[in-house]
Design a protein around this nucleic acid. Structure first.
Lengths: 340, 340
DNA sequence: TTGTAAGCGTTATCAG
DNA sequence: CTGATAACGCTTACAA
């Protein structure tokens, strides 16, 4: 493989001058620049990335930590983050934590080993006190995930309020026996959503049977299991809040296989407004997050932190969400609710 | 940031010995090893990744090129590839080409800039002659994508035969006016599928109206457009082959909105057996690929190439697929066809 | 079993 | 405008 030295020799110039051309720096005669570019082409020269990184102490790469790419919400999030990052000439590397604390910490190490200049955490399973120390190695911005503490910038919607609104909607549709299905309770988001759910119940003086709370529902097949469980042990259930469209879809599917009518026997609400929620029969009511805007802000904040040496102020950016009401919760034959 | 030098000083030993400990090499007394490990902990030392890479000329990283992570087929493929790669102690970086030739070439550069040791191409939009030169910089294995030429190892199913089987199934269900919807025709896979489709038509002496061929169908909303187009211009259509479950889902959705009955008015067949195809009403007939096995083989072959300096022989691994027949094509009220 | 010393390929500093 | 020269942090012959 050709090195900068080879190029310099062929062009009859020094490494320094070649380096100047590579990095688009001024003070190189047009003529010599041409000679160098020609030599580079001739040799098929490409600068060695490790050497540049070692020398310059910059990688122009950011890591995005997220639970799993197979969840369409995160699929779209990556899509947006990558687009925004590339506008600022940053590469993105995608890191799946699978909600494992250890994996999350392993990937945070990328900052220490200088493989990346900054990190977007769209997965936060560890306690903040275990993550905070990594801030000494480089900037971190939270996207979607958040928490009470500050000391880091965060970009997110108000999940407590969103869950409150969703639950209120279910209640107004006449649901009296609500179930709650979510992924693990480890994250702050999950706690917030649960708080919003309980608040709504309290507001309407509805009791909550904690036996109707499931905390292992992540995907479609979990949704099917959720339905089986409720059907068997709590047949009085008539409404269910889920933390994801996939889980909601699994419930709708399993319910229809058991000849339950959605929404009259059971109203179901999802989260994230994935395409799937629109395609189900009946279509699933859900909460839409402004993914593109959140991604753009996340990268903007991170890029600023990566360039400014003085740690810019930490801020919290809260975005609006939208409850999209569809047939999976429309129990009133004639309804004037909002509709997509 | 602490360097290996700092650790050496603190432990009262040389960099070499510290390096030996880092790399788990023999010939270090247990006692000194302990001292070094202690010193590393004390200083919060972590080896600098760029320096190691520069010196050792190995990155222990592979790049996976694919069209887009939002396509669930590729989502699952990454999932599997990453799992297999990590077993062999390789990191994976995910590169979305969006079916753009230039992006694909840009990512192939990772091999030249020594950012990765090898590449899995699950996206192949360029002509092979434009990709081949990169082989001099490191090994490449094709996964899912393939072509006639050899000179590279490939892992895939027989898309021509799969399309032939699918189409034959549609014809046997009584379809006489078949449409064909796929993504761009750029890839060899697309050509193979199309060939299989046409072969089946020829076998049964059915004509093909090329006006019923669409080559821009990638996702759900494209599927909806496909249906609108056919409804408007070719209402006689009674069966459609699509290159993806998402497109098929869009068609099923739009058809039901227009009160067409699937499969009697229109039989629809997808590809990849994504969860979506099972959840649609009616569920969509599709072709299942053995993703996990293909991913495992891909990594196995690539790892071998990366370790063996002598280029191991190039081979083609063809995996079996399975046609999964569901309601979107079952036009015969009583059918004994295979079923999931 | 341990240490010395020579790079890996760049970029930054400082003269010229 | 151009070029020596010294790092960046690590690994690896080769010596001891």
């Amino acid at each position: 493989m050709a090195t900068i030295e080879d190029v310099a020799k062929l062009a009859g110039l020094s490494r320094t001058t070649v380096s100047r051309v590579i990095n688009d720096q001024p003070y190189v005669t047009e003529e010599k620049k041409k000679r160098i570019i020609h030599a580079m082409k001739d040799l098929g020269y490409v600068p060695n990335s490790s050497a540049r990184r070692l020398r310059s102490q910059r990688t122009e790469t950011i890591a995005v930590l997220l639970p799993r790419v197979t969840n369409p919400f995160f699929g779209h999030l990556i899509e947006s983050l990558e687009r925004e990052a590339s506008k600022a000439d940053y590469q993105v590397i995608v890191c799946q934590t699978h909600d494992k604390k250890q994996k999350e910490l392993d990937y945070l190490q990328l900052l220490k080993t200088k493989q990346v200049d900054g990190i977007v955490m769209a997965s936060l399973t560890n306690d903040w006190e275990d993550v905070e120390p990594y801030l000494t190695s480089g900037p971190i911005v939270l996207c979607n995930e958040y928490m009470r503490v500050d000391g880091v910038s965060m970009v997110h919607i108000d999940h407590r309020q969103a869950a409150y609104d969703s639950t209120t909607h279910l209640i107004r549709q006449g649901c009296k026996h609500l179930a709650y299905a979510s992924g693990a309770h480890k994250t702050y988001i999950a706690l917030e959503r649960r708080a919003g759910f309980l608040e709504a119940l309290a507001k309407y003086d509805l009791p909550f049977d904690t036996d109707m709370e499931l905390d292992w529902a992540l995907d479609v097949s979990d949704g099917q299991k959720v339905f089986q469980f409720l059907k068997e042990h709590h047949p009085q259930v008539d409404g269910i809040f889920t933390g994801s469209d996939e889980v909601a879809a699994g419930i709708v599917y399993a319910a229809s296989q058991s000849n339950w009518t959605i929404p009259n026997d059971l109203a179901v609400i999802g989260f994230d407004n994935q395409m799937l929620s629109l395609l189900m029969v009946p279509a699933v009511t859900t909460v839409e997050q402004p993914i593109d805007e959140m991604a753009a802000k996340t990268i903007e904040v991170l890029v600023e932190k990566m360039s400014d040496k003085r740690s810019s102020q930490n801020r919290r950016f809260i975005y609006p969400y939208q409850l999209i009401i569809r047939d999976s919760t429309k129990r009133h034959p004639v309804s004037s609710s909002a509709q997509l």
